[in-house]
Computed example of a mutant assay.
Amino acid sequence: MLRAGIVGLPNVGKSTLFNALVANAKADAANFPFCTIEPNVGVVAVPDERLNVLAKISDSQQIVPTRIEFVDIAGLVKGASQGEGLGNQFLANIREVDAIVHVVRCFDDENIIHVSGSVDPGRDIEVINLELALADLAQVERRIERVRKQARANKDAQVELELLQRISAALNEGKSARQVSLTDEEEVTVKPLGLLTKKPIIYAANVAEDDLATGNDWVEEVRQVAKQENAKVVVVSAQVEAELVEIPEEERADYLESLGVEEGGLKSLIGATYELLGLRTYLTTGEKETRAWTINAGMKAPQAAGVIHTDFERGFIRAETVAYEDLVAAGSMAAAREKGLLRSEGKDYVVQEGDVMLFRFNV
Rank of each mutant, 00 (worst) to 15 (best):
E145N: 10
A135H: 08
G5T: 03
G271V: 00
G122K: 11
R318D: 05
N31Y: 11
A329K: 01
N129Y: 14
V7A: 07
D355Q: 14
R223H: 02
Y203H: 02
G85H: 07
R152W: 06
D184N: 10
G315S: 08
A170V: 01
E187R: 04
N31S: 15
R223C: 11
P200C: 06
F107M: 12
E221K: 12
V236P: 10
I57P: 08
L196G: 08
L132E: 12
A29P: 14
A133Y: 07
E49F: 13
V322M: 12
E187K: 08
G315P: 05
V64R: 14
V77P: 04
A177S: 06
D98H: 10
D156F: 03
T197C: 10
K227D: 02
T36H: 09
D108Q: 15
A157V: 07
I68E: 15
I167C: 05
F70E: 00
V46C: 13
A323D: 08
V53C: 07
V7E: 00
G331S: 09
A27D: 12
Y324N: 04
S332K: 13
K191E: 15
T290E: 11
N88M: 10
M1D: 09
D108R: 14
I100H: 06
V225A: 11
A29L: 01
I113E: 06
S116K: 07
A272D: 02
R143W: 12
V225E: 15
A169C: 04
N296H: 12
V356A: 13
N19G: 15
G298R: 08
K78P: 01
L76E: 10
E246T: 12
N362P: 03
T197F: 06
E220Y: 01
D348R: 07
V363Y: 03
R142T: 07
Q61Y: 00
S268N: 07
G117K: 11
T183H: 14
V351S: 11
A301F: 01
V77A: 09
M1R: 02
R146W: 13
G278V: 11
A323N: 06
V53R: 12
D217I: 07
Q62A: 14
P121Y: 15
F34M: 14
A323F: 04
G298C: 07
V190G: 04
A226W: 10
T16P: 11
Y255I: 07
D108G: 05
I112A: 05
T321L: 04
E162F: 06
N52A: 15
E287I: 02
I202K: 00
L9M: 08
A29W: 06
P47M: 12
K155L: 11
V46A: 13
V234A: 13
A25W: 13
A151H: 06
A335F: 13
E243I: 12
V245P: 10
